[in-house]
Design a binder for these strands. Structure first.
Length: 471
DNA sequence: TTTTGAGTTGTTCGA
DNA sequence: GTCGAACAACTCAAA
């Protein structure tokens, strides 16, 4: 069998069901289809770095990756005719756009000569097999997690020992130059300092976390000034690492006695699974609030407020630190993501979709399922959401989770000289303290763009206004 | 059908 | 400074 293997958000060779099956059956032509777009988002940078590495890996295994550009359907119609391919294999994706691409491929008449197979997506369990006793999808995490734990996560499939191409597959006209990858997106200069994308980089990062971090994960993950998270999100989002492989790696480390407390981390992996599961069963969640009453929510339009939030100049140090970390590194610590998102939604009353859209462009670890669930959770518009009256106080959150101001000093250097007890609320600091630290409010660092207490009251009133409504 | 228990990550206020 | 209650009901899922 001569099989085209279509790579998407599964940029690896380990635990790649489509690749493993194609390799077992015969010759393989690995293909990646770049979309035609002018502006590259932060996660496009990660994708392109990963592709360069995947190319080397596939070449070493025997069949180099072909880079194509355009609409996948057109590409495969042309490519299969030129190369005489007999099959097209790929791992399924759960996001709605990718699923409609898959459906179009499966239905396209001119591809009828191809044997097209969709393999399992990057999930731990089959979302159709994990349902309530009445056969409906779980809507809340607690029940989902309970049912999840009764199941067994499948073992990863092995890396093919070698791949063989077929001669006609080497169609020069269909191949873009490798140089197409050397992106000048503007992101690389910053991001290369923080990340080593690619399959191998994911293993290196996992081992570091396993040996130093996962043990204290439960507590340390909440403190943005500490390196206490896995920092695996980008690798999982791009598919550099398989979620099933990671799950079993944690289990193996546990069995070998290297990890005594794996549950808190495994539970977070289950949250990722739950986000994919919800997106699979409720594809409209990327665009619509799940709770109908939110369609009447009195969102404000506030271009200045939005721009200030994006720029990290809200006058709330923890929020500003988070937004600047995002711009600089393409990620944001989870706790700070919640506070920054909450600030946009509740303090500024800006629609959660506006925030989600900005994260889509700027997150190197952008994952549509996780991002959607996170924003809906903070907004309170999801099935399993934060109560409306839970409005983060960015000052209190700073004092609680960044007491020594480590994180704020790193990302908001103009406040670095302030003492710990002033750094979370410069606007309330003694003028002498400010002067000594070289801080001039409204000049070197902004005054708060909204008053917390007033904004809190306004948010509670807005939420009160949709209570009990049906949408 | 009805009942029951539970629900990722908080804040504020008053004793 | 510490601690418990109030904040609000509603939905989900299983018994």
């Amino acid at each position: 069998m001569k099989t085209i293997v279509w790579f998407r958000k599964d940029l690896r060779v380990h635990d790649h069901p489509a690749l493993a099956e194609a390799a077992a059956e015969g010759e393989v032509l690995p293909v990646y289809v770049l979309p035609e777009k002018e502006t590259l988002s932060a996660c496009d940078w990660w994708t392109r770095e990963s592709l360069a590495i995947l190319m080397d890996r596939l070449e070493a295994l025997g069949s180099p990756l072909k880079l194509m550009e355009g609409d996948p359907l057109d590409v495969f119609v042309r490519l299969s005719a030129e190369t005489g391919a007999e099959a097209l294999y790929f791992n399924g994706q759960v996001d709605p756009v990718s699923r409609s691409e898959e459906t179009a491929l499966l239905q396209e008449g001119s591809l009828n000569h191809l044997r097209i197979r969709r393999f399992v997506p990057d999930m731990m369990l089959d979302p159709d097999a994990l349902l309530t006793k009445s056969g409906t999808p779980f809507k809340v995490f607690g029940a989902f997690w309970k049912a999840f734990q009764q199941q067994t996560v499948p073992w990863p499939v092995p890396v093919p020992e070698s791949l063989s191409p077929w001669p006609e597959a080497d169609v020069e006209s269909a191949i873009l130059k490798d140089s197409r990858l050397s992106s000048e997106s503007g992101w690389e200069e910053k991001f290369l300092r923080y990340w080593s994308p690619g399959e191998n980089g994911s293993f290196v990062r996992w081992e570091a976390f396993r040996d130093n971090g996962i043990q204290d994960y439960k507590v340390k993950r909440d403190y943005p000034g500490i390196d206490g998270t896995s920092r695996l999100s980008g690798f999982l989002a791009s598919g550099n690492m398989s979620i099933r492989a990671l799950w079993h790696a944690v289990r193996r480390a546990e069995e070998e006695g290297d990890v005594l407390q794996p549950e808190p981390f495994l539970r977070q992996l289950a949250w990722r699974e739950f986000a994919y599961y919800q997106l699979y069963h409720f594809p409209s969640i990327t665009d619509e609030s799940l709770r109908p009453e939110f369609r009447k929510f009195p969102w404000r339009s506030d271009a200045d407020g939005l721009a200030t939030w994006k720029a990290g100049r809200t006058g709330y140090p923890l929020v500003d630190a988070g937004m600047r970390e995002l711009w600089e590194t393409g990620t944001m610590h989870n706790r700070v993501r919640m506070v920054a998102a909450s600030f946009l939604i509740k303090h500024l009353l800006i629609d959660w979709r506006t925030g989600a859209e900005y994260f889509k462009e700027t997150l190197a670890d952008y994952d549509i399922a996780n991002n959607t669930l996170g924003w809906q959770w903070v907004a309170g518009s999801g099935f399993d959401a934060a109560p409306y009256f839970r409005i983060f106080n960015p000052i209190t959150q700073g004092k609680k989770f960044d007491a020594a101001g480590t994180y704020i000093r790193r990302w908001v250097p103009e406040l670095a000289s302030l003492p710990d007890d002033a750094i979370h609320e410069p606007a309330a600091a003694d003028p002498e303290v400010l002067e000594e630290a070289g801080v001039i409010l409204g000049s070197t660092y902004p005054e708060p763009i909204v008053d917390h207490t007033a904004a809190r009251k306004r948010a509670l009133a807005a939420y009160d206004s949709i209570k009990g409504q049906k949408g």
